[in-house]
Computed example of a mutant assay.
Amino acid sequence: MTVTLAPHTAPDHHGRTSRPRRYLMCPPEHFAVEYAINPWMDPARPVDAARAMRQWDALRRTYLDLGHAVEVIPAEPGLPDMVFAANGGLVVDGTAYSARFAHPQRAAEGPAYLGWLRAAGLRGVEAEHVNEGEGDLLVVGDLVLAGTGFRTAVAAHDEVRALFGRPVVTLELVDPHYYHLDTALAVLDDTTVAYLPEAFSAASRETLRELFPDAILAKARDAAVLGLNAVSDGRHVVLAAQATGFAARLRERGFVPVGVDVSELMKAGGGAKCCTLELRV
C-alpha cells in the first residue's frame, strides 16, 4: 500500500521538524517462535498470532496517521521472522543493499526482500558478506553506523562504505540481548541518537561519546522493553509504549513520543524499528 507524501512540515517551537518517510513492512501472517536465535526467543512460550497481527496493523496505521507512506511485502510461508522488515536490507539513494543472514533459519528472507526491492524499481546489490540490513546498519545524516559482534560481519561494513560512498563507523555490541544495533541505539534525527552505553564495548562507547556528545543515554529498564528499537521522522518517535522513561527524555528534548504496543512481536526479539525498513529513494 502506498500513500501520497505530504510536504515537509514546519519546525515546532523546539526546532524539531518531521519529514515524511517511506517505509516497507511485512505482515506477521506466519509469525511464530519456532527456534531460538537470540535470548528473547523461547519456543516453549505461547505466541498469539492474531494479537501480533493486530499490533502490527496498529503500528502500520500509526505511520499512516503521521503522514508517512507504507508499502507492504507479502509474507512468505516458512519464514516466521520475515515480519522484521528492517533486517531485509539497507536502502540509500535508490540503491538496495541486500541482507545475508547469519542464521540459516532466516537465510531465505534476503532473496525475498531483494526481489521485492528490485521489482519496486530500486537498484538491487547482492551482499557478499553477512549482514542483517538496518538491524545493524543505521543512517545518521551522511554517516552509517554499523553494528557488529553478533550478526553482521565487519567485512560488510567495508562493502557498505564502497557501495554508498559514505563514512561507515563500526560499533561493537557486547550484550547478546542487544544483538542488533537497532536494539541498542535509536536514530532520532540527522545529528541526534539515543543509546544504551552498556550494550557497547568500551572503545565503541568512546566513539559514540565523540560523535554524539549530546546523545540521550537510555536507562537499562527502557532498553529492556526494546524502547530503543524506535522509528523517528525527526520529530515524532514511534517506540514501545512500555519505555516510559525514554519517552519522558524524548519530550524533554523536544521530540514527540508515540507509544505503540508490539509486545507480542517482542517474544521474537523485535520492536517497532525491527518491523520497519526505510526506503530512501
Rank of each mutant, 00 (worst) to 15 (best):
H8T: 01
I37L: 14
E76C: 08
D175W: 02
V237F: 00
A6W: 05
H30P: 15
V154K: 12
D12C: 11
N87T: 04
E132G: 09
A194Y: 04
L145N: 09
H103N: 13
P46K: 02
L217T: 14
D65T: 11
E134P: 07
P39Y: 05
P39D: 08
V174E: 00
A112C: 15
A155G: 07
G78N: 15
T2S: 15
A241F: 03
P257Q: 08
Y178L: 09
G269Q: 09
R166E: 10
G67W: 03
V33S: 04
F212W: 11
G149T: 11
T4M: 08
R51H: 01
H180Q: 11
A107P: 03
G124I: 01
R19E: 02
R221V: 15
L5Y: 05
A243W: 05
P39F: 09
N87A: 09
N87L: 03
F101A: 02
T62H: 06
V225A: 11
H30L: 09
H177G: 14
G165L: 00
P77R: 04
V168N: 00
S201Q: 02
A107Y: 12
D57Q: 15
V91E: 03
R161Q: 15
L228K: 13
L265G: 12
F101C: 08
L145R: 06
T207L: 03
A107H: 14
G88S: 03
A36F: 00
Y195L: 12
V237S: 05
C274M: 04
F150M: 15
A248R: 03
P213L: 14
A155Y: 07
A99C: 07
L163P: 00
A75F: 10
E34N: 15
D261R: 10
V262E: 05
P28A: 06
L171A: 13
A108Q: 12
T152G: 09
P11I: 01
G133R: 00
P74Q: 04
Q55K: 07
Q105T: 11
T276G: 07
R123C: 03
E132H: 03
R22Q: 13
D190V: 00
G115M: 03
